[in-house]
Simulated scan of single mutants.
Amino acid sequence: MDWNQMKLRLKLGKALPKTEGNFSVGIVCGLAISGILWISIIGWFMLIFK
């Protein structure tokens, strides 16, 4: 492996996203999406059983 390949690998390694915080971001996005889904489901039930 020559010097240019090593520099490219270092750049690619730094460009990868950190795994810290991805879990909490996923939980927040999941809660937001599930909240929207629950509101729509409750709205459908209210329309059906008027």
Rank of each mutant, 00 (worst) to 15 (best):
V28C: 01
I48M: 11
G30M: 04
L47F: 13
I36G: 10
K18E: 05
R9C: 04
F49V: 09
F23H: 06
S24Q: 14
V25R: 12
I41Q: 02
V28H: 00
I33D: 03
L8V: 09
I42Y: 06
L8F: 12
F49G: 02
R9P: 00
I27S: 03
L47G: 12
N22Q: 11
L47I: 14
S24Y: 11
N4C: 05
G43K: 11
M46A: 12
F23N: 09
N4D: 09
P17R: 03
K7Y: 09
G35P: 01
I36F: 07
M1S: 15
G30P: 03
P17Y: 02
L12H: 03
V28P: 00
M1H: 13
F49S: 06
L37A: 15
N22A: 13
F45G: 09
K18N: 05
W38I: 15
L10F: 02
K50V: 10
E20I: 06
L10N: 00
P17C: 01
L16Q: 04
G26I: 06
M6N: 05
T19A: 12
G43L: 13
L10W: 01
F49T: 07
L16D: 00
A32R: 03
K50M: 13
V28M: 04
G30W: 03
G30S: 08
L16T: 00
G35H: 04
N4S: 10
K50G: 14
I42M: 09
L16A: 05
L47N: 14
N4P: 00
A15E: 10
C29L: 13
W38T: 15
I41S: 03
Q5F: 08
I41P: 00
F23W: 09
I48W: 12
T19R: 10
A32Y: 03
I41R: 02
V25P: 00
F49D: 07
K7T: 12
C29G: 07
S40E: 08
I27D: 01
C29D: 01
V28R: 06
N22I: 10
M6K: 11
N22G: 12
K18C: 03
K11D: 08
M46F: 07
K7I: 15
I27P: 01
I27V: 15
V25I: 07
F49N: 10
K7A: 14
I39P: 00
F45C: 13
K14I: 13
K11Q: 09
R9I: 08
W44H: 04
I33Y: 05
M46Y: 07
S24W: 14
L16N: 00
T19S: 11
L31W: 06
M1A: 15
F23V: 14
D2Y: 00
M6Q: 10
I48H: 09
L12F: 04
S24K: 13
P17F: 02
I39K: 01
R9M: 15
L12Y: 03
M46H: 06
V25H: 05
Q5D: 14
L8N: 14
E20Q: 08
T19M: 10
M1K: 11
I39A: 09
I36R: 05
S40M: 12
W3Y: 01
K18M: 02
W38G: 15
V25Y: 05
G43Q: 11
I33L: 14
G43D: 11
N4Q: 09
L12T: 04
K7W: 10
Q5K: 14
V28Q: 02
V25D: 08
L8T: 14
G35C: 08
D2V: 01
G13M: 06
A15S: 10
L12C: 02
K50H: 12
G30R: 00
I27E: 02
I27L: 12
